[in-house]
Amino acid sequence: MVKTYNVQSHTEHPVCVRKLYMGFPGETLLEEVSFDVYAGEVFVILGGSGSGKSTLLKHLIGLYSPLDGEIFIHGRSLTQATPGEKTQIMNSIGISYQSGALFGSMTLLENVRLPLEEFTDMPLEAMNLVCRLKLFQVGLEGYEKHLPSELSGGMQKRAAIARAMALDPSILFLDEPSAGLDPLTSLELDELILNIARTLKITFIIVTHELDSIFKIADRMIILDKRHKNLAAQGSPLELSRTHPDPWVRSFLNREKIAP
C-alpha cells in the first residue's frame, strides 16, 4: 500500500498525527485519526473512560506502535525512526506519568538529575544547580533531599513534572496531572502549567478529564469518541462547548444530560 502524507504540513508543528489506527490486534480503539498540535500551545486530549486517551498518549510518546498511520514529532516520523533516532526524539520530549513514576529509592534531586547525568556532560555542580532550579520552578525548593514516599500526591506530581523538564524539552506530555488532587492543589498545578507554557514556550499535551482545568488552561483540545472510534471534535474548549453541532459534544463539555 502506498501511503502519501502531506510533508509540508507535518514539518510545521511539534506533533502531527496522520490517519492513525490504534488499538490491539482484533480490536481497534481509534480509526483514521488526524490532528496537529501547534507550537507553544496547551493541548488537551479528552474523552470518556475507556475511550483510549492514555493509549493515544502512549502512542504519541512511542511506547506503543500504531496499527497503521504516522506520528511525527518535530517533523520526524516516530513510527519509522531507528532506535538511535527514537532516543533523540525522546530526549526532545518530557513525560509525566499518571502515578508520577518517580524512582522510589532516589531523592528528588537524584530523580531530576538522572536524565542530565545520562545525556549531558555538565559538571556535577551545574547539574545540581539546574535540578534545584527545576524544583524551585515547581515550588519544591528545599525538598531536594526528600524521598518521593515522604511527599504528598500533589508534590509527587509536581516533582514528576520537574523531572520531565530536566532536559528542557520542547514538548511536555502529562497524563492526568490533576487526578486525585484536591481542588486547590489542582488549581496550583494548572497555574504551574500555564506559567511554564508562557515563560519557557513549552508545548503541553495533557490527558485529563477535569473540565474546570481544561477551560482554564487549554488553548485547543480533541475529544475522543468511543462510539465512532474517531474524534468527536477538535478546537478551543469554549467554542466547542457553545457552538459545536453535535449535542453529545456540547453535553459532554457542559456536563449536561442529553434530553431523550
Partner: peptide, 14 residues
C-alpha cells in the same frame, strides 16, 4: 545554550 551543550563552557568558566 542548552542542557546538551553548556557543559564545556561551564567547566571552562569554572
Amino acid at each position: 545554550m542548552e542542557a546538551g551543550s553548556v557543559g564545556p563552557l561551564w567547566k571552562e568558566l569554572a
